[in-house]
Design a protein around this nucleic acid. Structure first.
Length: 113
DNA sequence: TGTATGACCAGTC
DNA sequence: CGACTGGCCATAC
């Protein structure tokens, strides 16, 4: 039981961090994992966000503002359509370079808020 | 119970 | 940033 509680804690911490990402900015799985003390590797951040797409209660979380370390929209296939992620980012004026986000101009790191 | 997989990352060549 | 390696850890089969 303790284990499942810890897992739930980790998921919620990920959601809390994602909710803090300012409009027009993005962060990466690795930065979130590092901010949480790397207790679960960056892969678990992806798992937490994967749950967002399957849980109606979590739709308010701006998961589209989380990209991989290269700025790629690696999670776009898990949205309602593969285009939603990019459309939301562009609607927030997030700069793109080809198919990737320009992290040098819009990267946000947990704690800088 | 062991293996494979994944919205990942850092290091190396 | 191409390809590969090792590490990460929950889930699925």
């Amino acid at each position: 039981m303790a284990a499942s509680v810890e897992r739930a804690d980790f998921f919620e911490r990920v959601y809390d961090v994602v909710r803090l990402i300012p409009v027009g900015r993005v962060t990466t799985y690795g930065h979130i994992a590092a901010h949480l003390g790397m207790r679960s590797s960056a892969r678990m951040v992806g798992w937490a966000l994967n749950a967002v797409g399957y849980d109606e209660r979590l739709k308010s979380i701006p998961a589209h503002r989380v990209v991989n370390r290269l700025g790629e929209l690696s999670g776009r296939m898990h949205f309602e359509t593969p285009f939603v992620m990019r459309e939301r980012l562009e609607a927030e004026a997030v700069p793109f370079i080809g198919d990737r986000v320009d992290l040098s101009r819009c990267l946000w790191q947990p704690g800088e808020d």
